[in-house]
Design a protein around this nucleic acid. Structure first.
Length: 432
RNA sequence: GGAGGCGUCGCCUAGUCUGGUCUAUGGCGCCCGCCUGCUAAGCGGGUUUGGGGCUACAACCCCAUCGAGGGUUCAAAUCCCUCCGCCUCCGCCA
C-alpha cells in the first residue's frame, strides 16, 4: 500500500505513476475522496466520544436520583456514538480498499510501456554456436531423460501435468545448486533460512498476491484458509510483520529456500513440455529489509548477486529493465536476468529482482526504529523490502543442461558446481 | 485429537472473582539531567504504538490501543462469544 501522505500531498505524482503503468488515474481521486470521508468520520466520532467519556465520569461519581437522571441523558449520546463508530469503520474500510487498489509508484528510471517495452541493460557471454561446433543441441527434456535426471512421465502419472521427478544426477544437481547459492549468500552476509511454504491468509494478503487477479494463480488448502506460496518472498515478507526493527539492524538480508507452487492459470498451452513452467519448483530467494534511502542501491546489489551466480554457472544471459506496465503491484522497478536457452533460440527469465520500497511493509505493519541524531529526533518510520532470485531450480537446470551439453549428450559441469557434485567434471548419460 | 491453564505499554509484573476512583501498578532495562577525579552508586524527570485536530509533519489538545475481532452496558483490562498464539498433561506420530 502506498503512503497515504504521498497521496494527499502529491497526488499528481501518483496519477502520473498510474498513467505510466497503463492503469487508471481515477483510482487516485477515489482514494483522495475516501481519505476525506474517513477523516470527517473520525472527527465526528471522536468529538462525540469525548463527550461520552466526560459524562461517564460524572455518572461514576453521582448517586441516587442524580445518577438516574444522568443515565437518561447519556443514553441517547451512547447510541449516537455507536452509530458514528460504525460509520467510521465503514469509512476506514472504504479508504483502505481504495488505497490498496493503487499499486506502488513507479520509479522514474523504469522504462515506460508494456510487456515488450523492456530495456536490455546488458548482454553477458555469448550464446554457444552449436552449428559451428557441428551438432544439433538436444533440449533439456531429452538430456534429462538420457541422464536419468528428469522423469516427466512419472511426474505426470503421480501428480499430473507440469510435475516431474528429479532423479539421480537431477536430484544431485538441485542440491548442488542450492548449496552453491547458499554458500554465496552466506559469504555475502545473508542469513540462511528454510521457510514454510504453507502460510495463513494474513501472510498471503499482506504481500498483495491475493489482490492480483483474485489470487487466481495460488493454491488454497480447502477449508483451511491456508495457502501454498508461489515464492518464499511471501513468508519472508511476513516474517517481520507487526514488528518494529531497530534501524541499526538494517539491512537484514535473508537467503530463503522453499518450494514454490503456482497454478499457472491462464498459461495453458505455454511451455507445456519440460520443466520450464511447472506447478512446483524449489527456489533460493534473497529477501532484504533496508532503509528507504538504501533501497535503490540495494536493488543494484541484488542484481549483482544474481549475476554473480549466473556467471558461476557460465551461462549466457542478458539483463532487462522491466517496463512500467509489466511491473507487479508492489514493485517500483524490476530487473530480470534471462538466460539463453539454445533449443528455444531465445532468452528466458531465470531470475528477477524487485524493489518494493515501503509498499509491502505498510501492509504488513513493519516499521523501523530510528535513533535520534543531531538534526532529527528519534522516530519510527517506514522501511523498504526487496527481493531477488538466487536460483529457481528447474529453470536453472534447463539452462545448465542445454548450455553445457556435448555432442554425446554428456554435460560439462561448470567449475563452480563441481565441489558440490563430488568433483565430477562431466555428467554422463546412463544406459537404461 | 482430548482436558486444563495462560496472553497487560522493550522484559518481568499488579489489576480481572466483586465493571466506574485504571489518565493501567511496581521493578528491570533504556534516555535526559543533577551530583561526582573517572566509572559505579545515589537523586530527579522521561520512556507503547497508531490515528485525528491545529500546525513549522514543533508544542499542545483529543481518540483508539491490556493477543485479535464481535457483543452486553450509560461505562469493559475486568462480564459473554468467536478466533489466534503459548504452556502443562493425555492420545497419536516422522
Amino acid at each position: 500500500m502506498i503512503d497515504p501522505r504521498l497521496l494527499r500531498d502529491e497526488p499528481d505524482r501518483v496519477r502520473a505513476s498510474q498513467v505510466k503503468r497503463g492503469a487508471s488515474p481515477d483510482a487516485v481521486d477515489d482514494a483522495l475522496a475516501a481519505d476525506a470521508a474517513r477523516r470527517s468520520a473520525i472527527a465526528a466520532f471522536e468529538e462525540r466520544r469525548a463527550e461520552q467519556k466526560a459524562f461517564g465520569k460524572l455518572v461514576a461519581q453521582a448517586k441516587g436520583e442524580e445518577k438516574q437522571a444522568l443515565l437518561e441523558q447519556v443514553k441517547a449520546l451512547a447510541a449516537e456514538v455507536k452509530e458514528l463508530e460504525a460509520a467510521q469503520g465503514v469509512a476506514e474500510e472504504a479508504w483502505s480498499n481504495a488505497l490498496k487498489a493503487i499499486p506502488n509508484v513507479v520509479a522514474d528510471a523504469a522504462p515506460t510501456g508494456g510487456e515488450d517495452d523492456f530495456v536490455v541493460v546488458e548482454e553477458v557471454g555469448t550464446p554457444r554456436d552449436f552449428a559451428a561446433e557441428g551438432f544439433t543441441p538436444r533440449d533439456h527434456i531429452e538430456l534429462g531423460r538420457m541422464l536419468g535426471a528428469i522423469d516427466l512421465e512419472r511426474g505426470a502419472k503421480v501428480s499430473g501435468s507440469r510435475f516431474y521427478f528429479l532423479t539421480g544426477v537431477g536430484a544431485e544437481l538441485e542440491l548442488a545448486l542450492v548449496n552453491l547459492a547458499m554458500e554465496q549468500a552466506r559469504n555475502a552476509g545473508f542469513t540462511q533460512v528454510i521457510a514454510p511454504s504453507l502460510v495463513r491468509r494474513e501472510a498471503m494478503e499482506g504481500t498483495g498476491y491475493l489482490d492480483q487477479g483474485g489470487g487466481e494463480d495460488i493454491y488454497r488448502i480447502e477449508g483451511e484458509e491456508m495457502y501454498l506460496v508461489g515464492t518464499s518472498e511471501v513468508p519472508m515478507a511476513a516474517y517481520h510483520s507487526q514488528e518494529i526493527l531497530d534501524a541499526s539492524s538494517l539491512p537484514r538480508r535473508y537467503a530463503s529456500f522453499s518450494p514454490c507452487f503456482r497454478k499457472e492459470a491462464g498459461s495453458h498451452g505455454k511451455d507445456t513440455r519440460g520443466i520450464i513452467r511447472v506447478h512446483w519448483f524449489d527456489k533460493v530467494e534473497m529477501f532484504v529489509y533496508t532503509t528507504l534511502e538504501q533501497a535503490a542501491d540495494e536493488h543494484q546489489r541484488l542484481l549483482a548477486w544474481e549475476r554473480e551466480f549466473l556467471d558461476k554457472l557460465e551461462l549466457a544471459y542478458r539483463v532487462v529493465d522491466i517496463a512500467s506496465g509489466d511491473l507487479g503491484a508492489s514493485a517500483i522497478r524490476k530487473f530480470d536476468c534471462e538466460a539463453w536457452i539454445p533449443t528455444q533460440g531465445k532468452y528466458r527469465e531465470l531470475t528477477s529482482t524487485s524493489n518494493c520500497t515501503d509498499f509491502q511493509t505498510r501492509r504488513l505493519d513493519i516499521r523501523g526504529r530510528f535513533t535520534a541524531t543531531d538534526s532529527t529526533p528519534a522516530t519510527t518510520g517506514p522501511i523498504a523490502t526487496l527481493n531477488g532470485t538466487l536460483t529457481a531450480i528447474t529453470r536453472t537446470i534447463v539452462a545448465v543442461l542445454e548450455t553445457h551439453q556435448q555432442a554425446d549428450g554428456s554435460i560439462r559441469v561448470p567449475a563452480a558446481l563441481r565441489p558440490w557434485l563430488g568433483g565430477r567434471e562431466v555428467l554422463t548419460p546412463v544406459t537404461s
